[in-house]
């Protein structure tokens, strides 16, 4: 089955889950730690570029219908409710609207946009297989529970639909009843569903036991190999994280919103850090483009 989240084949989805996890941790945590507008802008832009490479047209709809409205709302609401700051721009029904609050609103909008967009990328890349692999390394039995839950939830939904259909065909369905009748019918479906799941779990348990479930130690299968490229990605991300720590320590990326706005955006140290930050975050997008290019050029040689 094709992964529905992914529009195109992704090069980054072949990266080892451990390296990918570290990258996402970095990309998701940094915007929340450093509210620097320039860095947030970089993060948001990098996330948007990659998400388009991953999801194509689908991402445009998501961006327009969900991400941008959320950002707009956050940018507008902050100055309306937050009156801190010394530079008053104007008064809205006797309440001051300050420049600092407007800027803070914009920064938090960028932060939200970046985090949401990185999450869409995470969703597309981190399939259940990878999640199970990562848990399986630590706790094989927890990995199994996740896998079983992932199977069971859609099965439950499907079964509920079948039950509703079966009841309808027997004239025991909902239509035509009042609210109480409908609630009763819903309860009957739920009760049938519970009976069914209890019964089926007996068979599932037998099937598990017949295949040695309960023996110790349990291992966890995976088909991931950690290669040189994974190591490079891991190291580069770690470097980015280390430098972020240093930059924060030296105050290279400092920003203050209240009471008055003060930003460090021109020092050489900041520019250096911002370039590195951008390089790390653009890594997946660069990887996608590089592989696509390599593929095309190798085809033209055939």
């Amino acid at each position: 089955m094709k992964d529905t989240e992914l529009n195109n084949r992704s090069a980054f989805s072949a990266v080892h889950p451990v390296a990918a996890l570290l990258f996402f941790a970095f990309a998701l945590v940094m915007p929340m730690l450093l509210l620097h507008p320039v860095l947030l802008g970089i993060s948001f832009a990098a996330a948007v570029v990659w998400s388009f490479l991953l999801r194509g047209k689908k991402q445009l709809g998501f961006l327009l219908k969900f991400v941008l409205p959320v950002m707009l709302l956050s940018a507008l609401l902050n100055p309306v409710f937050n009156h801190a700051g010394v530079t008053v721009l104007f008064y809205l029904r006797y309440n001051p609207v300050t420049l600092e609050a407007v800027l803070y609103g914009l920064a938090s909008a960028l932060m939200l946009g970046a985090v949401i967009t990185w999450f869409t990328c995470f969703n597309a890349i981190f399939t259940s297989d990878k999640l199970i692999y990562l848990t399986g390394r630590l706790m094989p039995s927890l990995a199994l529970v996740i896998s079983m839950a992932l199977r069971f939830v859609p099965l439950f939904t499907r079964q509920a639909k079948r039950i509703a259909l079966a009841r309808r065909g027997a004239g025991m369905g909902t239509t035509g009843g009042n609210v109480i009748e409908r609630a009763k019918n819903g309860l009957s479906i739920l009760s049938a569903l519970i009976t069914w799941s209890l019964e089926s779990s007996v068979t599932t348990a037998d099937s598990m036991r017949a295949r040695g479930y309960g023996l110790h130690p349990r291992t966890s299968f995976s088909n991931y190999r950690f290669d040189g490229r994974d190591a490079a990605i891991l190291l580069f991300t770690a470097l980015g994280a280390g430098c972020s720590g240093l930059a924060a320590g030296f105050g290279a990326a400092s920003v203050r919103f209240f009471p008055s706005y003060k930003i460090n955006a021109c020092s050489p140290l900041f520019i250096l850090y911002a370039v590195l930050y951008a390089a790390v975050l653009l890594l997946p997008a660069a990887l996608e483009l590089y592989e696509a290019h390599k593929w095309h050029s190798s085809i033209s040689k055939i």
Partner: peptide
């Protein structure tokens, strides 16, 4: 349907071997 334990084909194939600690 009721005998299948996991969500993916590869995991179902691996299930017994995982139990044996292979």
């Amino acid at each position: 349907e009721m005998q299948i334990v996991t969500d993916k084909v590869w995991h179902e194939l691996a299930f017994g071997l995982e139990s044996l600690g292979t």
